[in-house]
């Protein structure tokens, strides 16, 4: 059972998080932008230990570049991985067709914040019904099933058929 602690996160997070409910937190930046971050149990390709990660600028306010946001998220993710061999799944929001940019930004953030750390980021992209989806998983490098999990995720994503293939 995943139980993230705001107290532990706030030891290192530049923006202090407030627990809203289990595994969901908010923080407010110096520009007054409120972010909610959270994890939700996902059962798409693993029956246990898989959580989808979400972050939202809840009021969709303009958010100036702020490294403290990325550092706060990094601390939240680190707290997640302190809780055991769970796996993070993320999918870049595709509602406004900017998912490729989000994927690039996510990978830049990851490479900046987690360089030389013991966490793997593995990405996939797939076109389904003319929409590109960018998804990825993060897991600890010392996960005993590390390569198997990556392989299963790859197979799960790449074998998704288009609508016309189901006819």
């Amino acid at each position: 059972m995943l139980e993230l602690s705001a107290e532990r996160i706030n030891i290192h997070a530049p923006y202090k998080v407030e627990r809203v409910e289990a595994n969901t937190f908010l923080f407010t930046t110096k520009s007054g932008v409120v972010y909610y971050v959270g994890f939700s149990h996902d059962f798409s390709f693993m029956e246990e230990n898989l959580y989808q990660f979400f972050i939202t600028n809840v009021e969709h306010k303009h958010a100036p570049a702020d490294s403290a946001i990325y550092e706060t998220i990094k601390v939240v993710i680190e707290e997640f991985f302190e809780q055991g061999q769970n796996v993070i799944l993320y999918i870049c929001d595709s509602m406004d067709n900017r998912q490729a940019m989000r994927d690039r930004l996510f990978r830049i953030w990851f490479n900046t914040c987690f360089e030389n750390k013991n966490i793997t980021l593995y990405n996939e992209q797939i076109e389904i019904d003319d929409i590109w989806y960018f998804a990825g998983i993060m897991l600890r490098k010392d996960n005993p099933s590390h390569n198997r999990i990556i392989g299963q995720f790859h197979d799960f994503v790449q074998d998704i058929p288009n609508k016309w293939e189901l006819l």
């Binding site: 059962f43 798409s44 390709f45 693993m46 029956e47 246990e48 230990n49 055991g84 061999q85 769970n86 996960n143 005993p144 099933s145 198997r148 999990i149 299963q152 799960f156 074998d159 998704i160 058929p161 293939e165 189901l166």
Partner: peptide
């Protein structure tokens, strides 16, 4: 973490 159980799907 015990050995992970992966979801099996019966169809595409």
């Amino acid at each position: 973490m015990t050995t992970p159980v992966f979801v099996r799907y019966d169809s595409p």
